[in-house]
Design a protein around this nucleic acid. Sequence first.
RNA 1: GUCCCCUUCGUCUAUCGGUUAGGACACCAGGUUUUCAUCCUGGAAAGAGGAGUUCGAUUCUCCUAGGGGAUACCA
Length: 466
Amino acid sequence: MKVITRFAPSPTGYLHIGGVRTALFNWLFAKNNNGLFKLRIEDTDVKRSTQEAKEAIIKGLKWLQLDWDEDEVYQSKRIKRHKEIGNELLKLGHAYKCYCSPEELTEMREQARKEKRAPRYNGKWRDKDDSEAPNNVKPVIRIKCPQAGSTEINDIVQGNISIKNNELDDFIILRSDGTPTYMLSVVVDDYDMGVTHVIRGDDHFTNTFRQQHIYNALNWPLPKYAHIPLIHGMDGGKLSKRHGALGVDSYDDMGYLQETMLNYLLRLGWSHGDKEIISREEAIKLFNLDSIGKSSAKFDIERLTSLNAYYIENKNNEDLVTAVKNYYTNKKNINIDNEDLTLILNGMNGLKSRARTINELAEMCSFYIEKAPITLDKKSKKVLNDDNISALKLYYKQLLKLEEWNKIKIEEDIKMYCQENNINLGKLAQPLRAAITGKAVSPGLYELMEVLGKSETLARIININN
RNA sequence: GUCCCCUUCGUCUAUCGGUUAGGACACCAGGUUUUCAUCCUGGAAAGAGGAGUUCGAUUCUCCUAGGGGAUACCA
C-alpha cells in the first residue's frame, strides 16, 4: 500500500519551528517510502483563522522546499461531508443528541474535580429518549465511547500505550449549530485523503484515543500513528518568542539557509549514529520513524547558527553572491551592479568562512560595494591616527610602482618594504586594512587588495577620510 | 485535581546488561593567521534521586522528584 502522510496545520498564527519539523518528518517519511505527502489547512475555526497565517504556512513550506502532492485541502470546504458522517453515526446509533446547557457541563466538571475524578461528561443523555428533550434547546451530537475496558494505541514513537475507557467521555462530534468539531473532521479527512501514517506532535496523543472510537464506529481502518515530542525553549518550557517561537520565515529573514534549517530540525529528536551533517537527499534515504526519540528537545539557536556557518562555507560562491545581492535589493533597497558583484564573487572565499548568516555575509561585503573615499567605522578611525596615515602615504609611493597586481606580489612588496624600513608588519598592515576596508577586521589583506584592484586600492589610501 | 509521556556533559545526541559512557555545538587552553574567522591539537564537562532484578545496570522493574502534554460546543 502506498504511504500517504499529511501535514495539517491550523492557520491561526505563524508557522513555527515545531510545526515545520512535523511537516519535515511527514515529508521525509513519504519520500523515503516513495509515497505521497499532502497538505491540509485546518481552517474550520473561522474566528481564529487568518489569510496571513495560511500564506505564512505555504511560504514556510516553500522556503524549505517541502513540496506537497496534489492541491492543498481546505478543511472548511469539507464541512458538508463531515456533517454527513456525523449524522450517519447518529443514525447508526453510535452517537446521540445531548441537550445539556453549558452551565450543566461546567457543573459536571466541577463535581468530578471535587471527587478527584477526570473531569468529563457524565453521559446524561446517552440513554435518554428524544421525547424527553427540552423544546427550545438545540442539541449537540456526542459519540458513544465504550464505558468499560481500555483503549490501546500502538504508536511507532511512543510504543503501546493504553488508558482506561472511563477516562474518556462521550465527546462532541457535531456542535449545536450543526458544525463538526475537530475530532470528527480530522478522522473524516484523514480517511478520505487515504492517510496511512499520521505523524504529528504529541500534544495530539490523547486525542488519538478519542479518534480511534470514531474509526471503530465507522468500521474504518486505523492509520498508523507516530506522535513526535514537542520542541521546547532553552528554559525547558514552552517555546516562547525569545526561544524560537518565531515564524520560520523570520529565520530566512535573519539569514539562515534553508538547508541549515532542514538539517537542524531533522537532528532535533532524530539521529543516525554520530552523523551530524545530513543533506536533503541523504535525509530522504536515511529517515525512519523508529529513530525518533521520545523526549522533547530544546531549540538552541547557537547550534543552528554554527550549522549555518558550516553550510555557508560549503555553499558555492555563485549562490552566495546571489544571496548577497538579494539581501541588498530586498532589505536595503540597493541594487549592486555587475562590476561589484564580480568583486564580491572574487572575494567570496575570504568572506564566507567569516560569516555565520547570510546577513552577516552581506554586511561584510560592504567594502567591495563602496568606492573611494569610503566610510570608516569607529575602530578603523582609531587605527588611522596621524602617524599611521603618514606612514601609509609613504608606502603609497612604493605601492604605486608595483606592476604585477596579485596577492603574492603584494605580500612580497609589503614585507620587503617593512623589512627595508625596519617597520613591524602589523604596524603597516593594520592601518592599510583600516584604510582599504574601513573596518578593523576583514578577510586577508593581500587577497582583498587583489580583488579590489590597484587603482581602487590606491584611491582609498590616498583619499583617507578621517 | 485526574490521565499519559519524558529525564545521559550547558545543548542536540550515541549506547539496544559488561564501554576509560562516544560524537557534535558551545566553552577553555595552545598552534596556524598582519586582524578577525576558518583550520589543527588538547582540555573541562553527563547517566535526576532511591529501592529492587542480576555475577554485573545508563540500559529491565517499582517508587519519589522535576519537566512536558492532555483534560473545550479550539484545532
